[in-house]
Structures are given as structure tokens and as C-alpha cells.
Design a protein around this nucleic acid. Structure first.
Lengths: 157, 157, 157, 157
DNA sequence: TTTT
DNA sequence: TTTT
């Protein structure tokens, strides 16, 4: 089916430090857990309520993965753009499971750091923006995530 | 946590007619299955490949649910904006499961019809924003489905 | 023309304090000047370069205007969503001019504060999110900005 | 200034055929005029009203410029993503002027064709992302223009 | 005019 | 598990 758009835009805080792993190809893959939340006044009780949503983010884009590894830490606030992808996997009891992730790959995605470094850890000397180039090569284009055997034996979250 | 954004933007085609159900409150809830796809040239085989992503959409917003019920049909192309929500549920074997959906609720979301089935079905004489939809799909197979075999296949949910 | 989308998403810093004025109807209108920037390495000189883009934002949405008036100040970083609108006006020499603005109105737009209050001015006790409700009334809908006589004699920027 | 985002998302119809020109570097530059519109019921008169917004789009991205040149024609509906840029120029009377455009450049932007003119003109056998557009508009008036009188009017630029 |  |  042609003519489609699949875009996710998140601004949230990292729930923990990024997890770095290696694809079989040697490529770096960075996983993030990002929290967004809604707050509202409950009309019944009059109390202020909050609901946090947790997002699983997987970064295949090389340049963005580098930025994420170097500068992202638990608690940091980021703007992140990616696309939705639901991955099928088999749990230990042999049952099929599905996990939906926000994927930042070679062709789509962006990462912008929104808070300043608080003096902890490595300094990074300025703001970072690390977007995937719009110019997707038309030859040899192949989603970095097709099949993704490197992830098939990994339990999400 | 304050200061967050949780936004999904999709342009895709409905995999089947909308499902309408009623909340205990009596409110109408509309569920959609939306397909987006990526196509690329496989560098190894040189073949053209395509991967379709299926999105579960749940519309709680009253006005948008009305529009969806009246005008959306299998095969129609829509622009949809909502937010990500992962819902926990228990399957028949008692195991915890998670399902991620794109939610259009009272506060966030949009629906825009992108193809017109002019001259067929109900006319509504206006633009196709969710507040003023422009054309009515037929019941059953929309003509827009012709030529899109991927939509004739079984949808995963 | 039906079936359209007009959306702007900005994350940037206020160049100065918001300007508050009153429409003839008595409604509050808040104007912001928002800076975004791109940085890159000039391949010729090898120098780091930066280009700042200034955006004129006009907030007609009542609730968001309130939040903007109370919490936004020069330098603050915000996430802002609105729509593009180009306004025609006549300058002092009688010439027609056009100014493009990002409009946050009753039906579309969002404002999220992204940095914490730095201890200056009024405290606001938490994060603010102030989005325009998705439920645009279908009766009596009329863009707050149609004609906008209150702005016609105002020179932009 | 780091940590900023400048993003425009439009779904609209071309007001006229794309204009192609050459940069001094020899690079192809494609300009589009895109219409989006809002419709609403005027509460005073009870009449249905519509306001069309015209957007200037400039495509510097090589791959997307190619797609635009080949497949876009007056009346076609597209999804377009770019960034806002205000350009200063001097008119014939020596006065400074500003024009705001939606820019699709090397780093940011996307173009997706949303309607198909199947069976007419050049076939390209694929999906309609900018890297793999799916259908070719006719030269001259596209059939999609029929019934959309607003596109037959003079566009403002 | 912002920001880093 | 984040954040305010």
C-alpha cells in the first residue's frame, strides 16, 4: 500500500540509562525507555491525577545511536521522532507475543536534547540535534529493522 | 511528570470496516485497523519489497467517533492523529499481556478523510475534517480497495 | 478543498517576554517570538555555523493564552503546536504586505513548557500542558482569526 | 541555540504545476504552492464558510525534488513535511520584504503522494513515498482537480 | 531578541 | 523506571 505516513513524536524523560547492544552486523543498537505523562483534575474527587505512559524506543540510526549513547542518561528530557513498529516474538512458554516500539532508523527519526547537562558525567559542549537525513538512498534501501534477527531472542522491557 | 508530548501521526488505509462498541457509560467507541507500509529495493536480491505495519486505533472522542462510524470503511485512506497508549490485559491462560494502541480521545486527536468516494452513498457537502467530513464510503468494500491486494488479506487484529 | 492538514511543531526559546493585547471582543491575545536554530559544520571552512530562525506565534486559544501569559518569559523553552496562517496588511506607505504566523486557536494548538522555572518571577507549581481540545464544536465553528480586524493595524514583529 | 525543533506538516493540494529552476550550483529547486483549508459553519449567518490557506514550498532535497518534478501536478494531494524559513528580499522599490516558506532540504522533509492517477501517464510500479513514488500526474490539469473550483482560481503566488 |  |  502506497502513500502512507507512520510518525511518532515524543517529548519525555528517560526512565533509566540507555541500553547499548550490538547487532550481529556489528551495528550499535540503543534502547531507551521514555516516560510521558498526562495530568488532569478528576471531576468526581476533585483530586489532581496523573497517568504515566512508558515508551520503548529502539535506535538503529548510527549517528543518533552515537548521540544517545554519549549524552542520554536517566532523567534527561528529549524530543524524539520515530515510527511505530510492532514486533512479534516468542516467550519462554512458546507463546507468540507482540511488542510495539518507536523505531529510529536510517531513514526516519530525530533526537533532540531538551535539558542542559547537570554537571554529571561527560560534558557534550552544546546542544545536540541528530536527525536522520531526509535523503534516503533510493538504491539498496532496506530497513535496518527488516526481520531483525538480532532482536528475536530478546525479551522486551 | 510535566512537560511531555505523546503524539502519533498516521496516514494509512483501513484494513476493515470500523468496529463500533459501547462503553459502560453509553459512549460510543470506534476501533480501527490502519495499515501503513514501507517499500524498498532489497540490495541482495534486487527485488522490490514491502513491509506493512498494522496499527490499532481506538477513538473515544465523541465527534470523531461519529465521523468514523459514518464515513470510514475498509480501504479508505485517512490522516489520523492520536497518542500512544499501552494497555495491560490478561489472556485466557491468565497471563499478562500488553497491547499498544493509538488513542484519539477528548483532548487529543484528529481525523481527516483523504480520498473521496464522490457520488456514492451519503453526501455531506463539505470539507473532510473530522468536524465536517466530506464523503461517505459505501458499506462493504470501498472501491478504493481495488488494486490494493494487501488490504484484502487477513488483518492481524 | 477538503481533507487537509496544516500543522506546525516548534521547540524553541522565547526571544522576549510575551506580548499581551486585547481583541475588540475582549478576548486575550498573546504574541510570542520563538527562536529555533540549526547548527552545522561548514564543509568549506570547516567552521561551526549556526542559523537562527525566528517565528511569530499568535495565541487566540483562551486557556493556552492564560498559560502563556502566566508562565512564559524571555528565554524559556517551549514545545508549541499550531497552524500556519499568512495575514495580509497594509504598511504606512499603503503597500500590501504579508506576514506568516503560527496560530494557536480554539481548535488547534498546544503549548508545553520544557524547562523548569529558574526561580524568577511567579511560580507555577508544576509542569504545564495546555492543549486545545480535540472536540471542536461543529455548530458555530468560526476561526477566531477570520478577518481579525484587531490585528489589521498592527505591524508584525 | 541547541535543542530546537522546526517542523511543518501539511496535507493539501497543489494550486498549480510545480515550478522548476536551477540553483547556481546546478542543483534543481522545485517550488510548490499548496492549499489547505478550513471549513466551518458561521454562527451569525448559519452559512457554511471556507478559508483557504496558501503555502509556499521550496524543495532543495535532490531526491524529493526529482519526485516532485516527475509526479506532482496541479490538483494533486500530497503529504509534505518540511521546516519554516523566513527569507528577506528587496522589492523593486528598494524596500525590505519577508517571505515565509516551507523548506524541504537535505536534512529534513518528506513528500508522500496521496492520490493516485492510475493508468494515466508514466507508471512507476511502487509505493508513493518520496523515494518510491507510485503514480504520475498528467501534464496540465490533473483529473483530481475536477470539482475543486478553489484550485481553478488564481493562486496568490 | 532566544539558547548553548 | 522518569519528571514536577
Amino acid at each position: 500500500m502506497a502513500g502512507s505516513v507512520n510518525k511518532v513524536i515524543l517529548v519525555g524523560n528517560l526512565g533509566k540509562d540507555p541500553e547499548i547492544r550490538q547487532a550481529q552486523s556489528g551495528a550499535k543498537i540503543v534502547s531507551l525507555t521514555l516516560a510521558t505523562s498526562d495530568t488532569w483534575n478528576d471531576k468526581a474527587s476533585g483530586e489532581r491525577r496523573e497517568k504515566t505512559e512508558w515508551h520503548r524506543v529502539v535506535i538503529y540510526n548510527e549517528r543518533i545511536a552515537d548521540v544517545a549513547e554519549r549524552f542520554l542518561r536517566k532523567g534527561r528530557k528529549v524530543f524524539l521522532e520515530g515510527s511505530l513498529q510492532t514486533r512479534k516474538w516468542t516467550d519462554q512458554s512458546g507463546q507468540e507475543r507482540y511488542t510495539t516500539e518507536v523505531v529510529v532508523d536510517r531513514f526516519r527519526g530525530d533526537l533532540v536534547l531538551l535539558d542542559s547537562n547537570r554537571g554529571e558525567g561527560e560534558d557534550f559542549g552544546g546542544g545536540q540535534s541528530a536527525s536522520a537525513p531526509a535523503s534516503r538512498g533510493n538504491a539498496g534501501r532496506s530497513p535496518a529493522t527488516a526481520g531483525r534477527p538480532d532482536l528475536d531472542d530478546e525479551v522486551p522491557f
